[in-house]
Simulated assay, not measured.
Amino acid sequence: MKNIILEKIINNKLKTNLNIQDYIPNGLQIEGKKHIKNIILGVSACQQLLNIAIKLKADAIIVHHGYFWNNESPVIKGFKKKRIYTLLRKNINLYSWHLPLDINEKIGNNIYLAQILDIKIQGKINPFIFYGYLKNKISIKKFLLKIKNKLNRIPLHFGKNAPKKIYKIAWCSGAGQKFLEKVLYFNVDVFLTGEISEMNLHIANENKIHFISAGHHATEKGGVIMLGKWLKKKLKLKTHFIDIYNPI
């Protein structure tokens, strides 16, 4: 598979051309060898992932969090130089898809969360927030235990005086805590996201809604996992997801 062709195929699958303002360039960020057979996937393109990709003789790396963010310095030195030098020296392609892997309705972080937590998707509150229903009302304790088991981490939970039984869920992978106030108007029992801010505790308690922070990394593994499985099945490429521990 040619590297440029692979980029076009994934762009088409994830509908990257949607008019959504992103913080990072999507697609092929650093060009490597032209032909790709072996792909390593991960959440973030950290040095540890690059080193593993070299050991596994990868032709390409696909991540959710790549390089060249809008709010970072354009200067390439220190750890940035080391990362880019590693890729160029070994002629490895680096691909990154950020918001397209959050908002896509077939392959993505939010779709993955719905699947592993048994939530039936009903729609979206905005392009980034999904909502849906559990099969049956369950206790918040059971839901938290399911999150712990499926994402392999203990979620942070607040919800003073919120209902003990839950049914309607809204969720947004990653740094979705800024959407809590918007979710309040949609009569949900739970809002699940990756990160948390100081004010979220008070807003959740005062509005009797369960707020769950399950980790930015943990809630954004699913997109690249699903993409890797799709590439293996559809294009017969060798894919391997590497889960580098990150409690954040």
Results as ranks from 00 to 15, higher is better:
47 Q>P: 00
196 I>Q: 07
116 I>W: 09
56 L>N: 15
195 E>H: 00
177 Q>Y: 00
231 L>M: 15
147 I>Q: 11
64 H>I: 08
150 K>Q: 15
98 H>A: 03
71 N>K: 14
181 E>T: 06
60 A>Y: 00
200 N>I: 02
196 I>F: 01
77 K>D: 00
211 F>D: 01
167 Y>M: 10
237 L>F: 08
240 H>R: 12
133 Y>Q: 12
49 L>C: 09
19 N>I: 10
105 E>N: 15
208 K>T: 12
132 G>R: 03
126 N>I: 06
31 E>Y: 13
181 E>Q: 06
175 A>R: 00
169 I>G: 07
3 N>G: 09
28 L>N: 02
169 I>Y: 08
116 I>K: 05
126 N>H: 07
237 L>M: 08
157 H>Y: 14
24 I>L: 15
221 K>L: 10
61 I>P: 03
128 F>D: 06
64 H>Q: 08
221 K>D: 00
235 L>C: 08
230 W>G: 07
233 K>Y: 10
215 G>K: 00
38 N>S: 10
88 L>M: 14
106 K>S: 04
170 A>Q: 12
176 G>R: 07
218 A>F: 04
147 I>L: 12
143 F>C: 11
69 W>S: 08
66 G>H: 02
78 G>E: 04
44 S>F: 05
83 R>N: 14
239 T>Y: 05
151 L>M: 11
96 S>G: 08
119 I>W: 06
156 L>A: 01
116 I>A: 04
19 N>Q: 11
125 I>K: 04
